[in-house]
């Protein structure tokens, strides 16, 4: 057996590689190469005429200084932070409340919570269009309801007023993300051992107390993973802003991914757009390493 072993084992291990080779070739060409290409692009003066040919002149860190001193960059970064803080906290809070509620075994709990997921599954372009209609200044139903209950006296321009548009987009994104938070928290809750709760209730701990002393601490791994993923996913938000406000009015609802798109595909400053992509890449890598560290600890 051993005589032919070496040839056979080489052939066998070659065979193993045929499984992964096509997929990894694809990932290298269409993801890794583009990511690295952003780095080269970010130090070149790439515009519409030389972008494709690739012979844009090397300009060092000029694009970086241009972007960092651009007031719109600062605005997009601040907006990004506001957007993230509100989305993460409210998606989590609402998701947690819904998870706690739907975790109780009442008739219909299962299909009701499953149906809520439809909001998350639906194309973001659709949800964005629908929210644009709900929040419309002229005939929007949200304005109508707010006026009806007497909270406001005249319609709010939810999507066309600077300072408000960003929060309208944020609200729509919270709506999209709530079911996702709920489902992951529910999965976490269902993996917790029931005996601890029984022991706690024998010890006289109430529902609220056992939530803070048992559920929350035991869910810590799920919660940290959820928050890391929330941060990473907020860099993926583009469609919603495009369809609802196009980053406006006066760029007031732009966040970093939209700003990068605007630089590259509206102003054709591909070099500066690449700078923003490089910055986003660094952010994502930092949070991805936290995320991987946590999932590894989880014993995935």
């Amino acid at each position: 057996m051993k005589k032919y072993g070496s040839y056979k084992s080489i052939k066998k291990s070659m065979n193993e590689y045929t499984f992964i080779l096509p997929a990894f070739l694809f990932l290298v060409i269409f993801i890794l190469y583009p990511v690295l290409y952003n780095f080269t692009l970010s130090v070149k003066d790439a515009n519409l005429s030389n972008f494709v040919s690739g012979n844009a002149p090397f300009t060092g860190l000029e694009n970086y200084t241009k972007v960092i001193s651009d007031p719109y960059f600062k605005q997009a970064a601040v907006n990004m932070l506001i957007f993230m803080v509100f989305c993460l906290s409210l998606q989590f809070l609402i998701g947690m409340l819904l998870a706690l509620f739907f975790n109780m075994q009442f008739a219909g709990a299962k299909w009701m919570r499953a149906l809520v997921l439809v909001g998350w599954m639906n194309p973001v372009i659709i949800s964005g269009s629908t929210f644009k209609w709900l929040l419309s200044g002229d005939n929007g139903v949200v304005n109508y309801l707010l006026m009806k209950i007497g909270l406001i006296h005249s319609p709010i321009a939810f999507l066309t007023q600077p300072g408000i548009a960003l929060f309208s987009v944020t609200a729509a994104n919270i709506w999209v993300g709530v079911p996702f938070n709920m489902i992951l928290l529910l999965a976490g809750m269902q993996s917790l051992p029931l005996e601890i709760y029984e022991a706690a209730s024998i010890d006289g701990a109430g529902k609220i107390k056992s939530f803070f002393t048992i559920t929350l601490p035991l869910l810590k791994p799920t919660i940290s993973i959820l928050l890391m993923m929330g941060i990473i996913n907020s860099f993926k938000v583009f469609d919603l802003i495009y369809i609802m406000t196009k980053g406006g009015p006066a760029r007031s609802s732009q966040i970093l991914p939209y700003y990068s798109y605007e630089l590259s595909f509206q102003s054709y400053k591909f070099g500066e757009g690449a700078v923003v992509s490089v910055l986003i890449f660094i952010f994502v890598m930092v949070f991805a390493s936290f995320y991987l560290h946590m999932t590894q600890k989880e014993g995935d």
């Binding site: 993801i31 190469y33 692009l41 860099f235 798109y261 690449a274 992509s277 986003i280 994502v284």
Partner: peptide, 9 residues
């Protein structure tokens, strides 16, 4: 990786 990062390359 977000699509906005890969779109222009």
């Amino acid at each position: 990786f977000p699509a906005s990062m890969l779109a222009s390359p």
